[in-house]
Write a protein that binds this DNA or RNA. Structure first.
Length: 221
DNA sequence: CACCAGGCAAGTA
DNA sequence: TACTTGCATGGT
């Protein structure tokens, strides 16, 4: 889709290279990906700070931690009962398949790795793709709530599109390059924060703000 | 007070 | 299959 390519180019003019994801280590990326499910990133940072202070950003230490300790640490990120189990289930898989070594997964095919992640209860397509892209360095396209909202609001797709179909539609419009995939998603999150969840009746474009004020909404809609 | 935030799984009909 | 609901804290 030419519109998608143009959208990407406009975003790049505005944001250039954002160098995402905000984390110290690839392992921290994984935990952040789980903790940020339907959650504001500030709350996730607070949870990660707690984990850091407890030494739980080391995989083997996290494996040994009591469930109640994990729950208490991640409490600020919300859904902490569910997320604690998600983290533990991921850790059991990670320890089993790779002895908690990301490098040990380098030989695994991306599709196979994605399916393995998706088989872990609590890890859905977006979390899996966050992990694949930002922790495992695989060139996959991440569809998040902003991506979906932008695509629908711009009229690129009807709202009932599936995750995989939207990922395919958007990723096929640009080069399949890992750094581009990382930056495209990063830029979408940045601009996506300007799109309100619901259209407001008094707004010409969608919410209360236009997507890229510098370029003007006409470029995008 | 209402609404939202970088989802996901389980329940219902 | 196609909706709906629970999960939960913290900010606006």
């Amino acid at each position: 889709m030419k519109r998608v390519r143009k959208f990407h180019n406009l975003l790049y003019e505005r944001y250039c290279d954002l160098e995402w994801w905000p984390a110290e280590t690839p392992f921290e990326v994984i935990l952040g990906a789980i903790l940020t499910q339907n959650t504001n990133w500030k709350n996730v940072e607070s949870a990660l700070d707690n984990m850091r202070n407890l030494g739980l950003l080391e995989p083997k230490a996290l494996l040994l931690a009591e469930m109640d300790v994990i729950k208490n640490a991640i409490r600020p990120s919300g859904y902490y009962n569910q997320k604690a189990f998600k983290i533990v289930r991921f850790m059991e898989w990670f320890d089993e398949i790779a002895n908690c070594s990301i490098a040990a997964l380098d030989t695994v095919d991306t599709t196979e790795l994605r399916n393995a992640l998706l088989s872990i209860k609590g890890i859905g397509p977006e979390t899996a793709d966050d992990i694949l892209l930002y922790a495992f360095q695989r060139p996959v396209f991440v569809v998040d709530t902003y991506t979906y909202r932008i695509a629908v609001r711009h009229g690129w797709t009807p709202p009932d599109i599936t995750y995989d179909a939207l990922a395919e539609m958007l990723s096929s419009a640009v080069d399949n390059d890992i750094n581009l995939m990382k930056n495209f998603h990063a830029m979408i999150v940045e601009v996506g924060k300007n799109y309100c969840k619901k259209r407001k009746p008094d707004c010409e474009y969608c919410p209360g703000k236009t997507a890229l004020p510098e370029n003007g909404p006409a470029e995008l809609f």
